[in-house]
Design a protein around this nucleic acid. Structure first.
Lengths: 161, 161
DNA sequence: CGTGAAATATGTATCGT
DNA sequence: ACGATACATATTTCACG
C-alpha cells in the first residue's frame, strides 16, 4: 500500500462510502461539500492507495434459503509458527470460512463458517479441521440467527498519515 | 420484503455484485450476457425487493490505526424471551457491536466487537454487559489478527422463490 | 428482452487560489 | 497542492418494438 496522507475530508468520504457506496459521485460531492471533480479525485486516490479495498453488495439474510452460520473455536496442540501457518493456509482457502480471527485466550482461532446445511459442515470439518494433526480440539457454536452484521469501522480509528 | 421469484440469471447477478458492486451496469450486463437495460431492471428489482440490502465499501485493515477485534461469548442467567430481547436491544444499538449471533451450545450469544483501544472496550463492557442483570457470564477472546473477512454468501443457498 | 435516443453521470483539461 | 468550472466521453434510463 502506498503511503498516504488522509485528512478530515477523506475520512468523511470513507465514512459515507462505508455505509453506502452506491451514491453517485455527484451526490457524494454534495454531501461532503466538494465539487464533483475534486470528490472523484479523492475517491480514486483512496481506491488506488488500497484504502478502499472493495465495494460489495450485502444481501438480505431473509432472501437466503438454508444458510447456517457457525462460530468455530479452534485450539492447536503446539504453538508453532509454521504449524499455525499450515492450518491458516488450509482454513483461509476454504470457501465455507467467511471470517478468521487469531485470538489470545482459551483458544487460538475463531472462525465464522457459513454453510447451506449440516452435510456441508461435516465436509468442511473433515477437510479443514480433522485433517490437521496439530489441531487439538475445536468447539462449534451453531447460530440460530445473525442479529447484526455491520462492516463499517469507526472513523476515529483511521490512521491520519 | 415483497415476494420474489429468483432465477439463475438473478443468482449470477447477485454472485457478481457480492464480490464487486462497483461494476458499471454495462460491464455487469456483459458479464451476465444481457442487454444493459434488462440487466438494470433486474438489479433494480433485486434492490426494491430488499434482496440487495446495501452496497458498501470495505476498507483495508492496514489503513486502520489501532483497531481491536474482540470475540465476546455471552451466557444469560435465565432463558427468557423478553430478557433476551432486552439484552439484544442494548447490544444491537451499541456501535462497538459489529456482529451478533444467537447460538445454541455452551453460550447464548457471540458478539464481534470492534474498538480502538482497551479503554473503549471497558466502556462497552460497563454499558452493555455489566449493566444487564440477566447476563450471567461473558468471556472475551482478543483478536491479534483478522486473517479473513468475506461478506459473500454461496449462491447455492439462495432461495429460488 | 433488445434497441436507440434523451437525460445523467463520470472523467479530464485548464485555470485560479 | 487542491479545488472549481466547463467540456468531452461514458453510462444510465425510458419509451417502444
Amino acid at each position: 500500500m502506498t503511503f498516504y496522507f488522509m485528512d478530515a475530508i477523506d475520512r468523511r468520504i470513507l465514512d459515507q462510502l462505508q455505509r453506502n457506496s452506491s451514491l453517485t459521485n455527484q451526490a457524494l460531492a454534495d454531501e461532503i461539500g466538494l465539487s464533483p471533480s475534486a470528490c472523484l479525485k479523492r475517491v480514486n486516490r483512496l481506491r488506488d492507495a488500497g484504502i478502499i479495498e472493495q465495494e460489495v453488495a450485502l444481501l438480505n439474510p431473509d432472501a437466503l434459503g438454508q444458510c447456517l452460520h457457525m462460530v468455530v473455536e479452534v485450539t492447536m496442540e503446539r504453538d508453532n509458527k509454521s504449524l499455525y501457518q499450515r492450518f491458516l493456509t488450509t482454513a483461509l482457502s476454504a470457501p465455507e470460512v467467511k471470517q478468521c480471527y487469531q485470538v489470545t485466550g482459551e483458544c487460538d482461532f475463531v472462525l465464522i463458517v457459513t454453510v447451506a446445511d449440516l452435510d456441508e459442515y461435516d465436509s468442511f470439518c473433515d477437510r479443514v479441521l480433522y485433517g490437521d494433526d496439530n489441531l487439538r480440539k475445536f468447539r462449534t457454536l451453531l447460530s440460530r440467527k445473525r442479529h447484526k452484521f455491520d462492516t463499517s469501522v469507526p472513523m476515529e480509528s483511521l490512521r491520519s498519515t
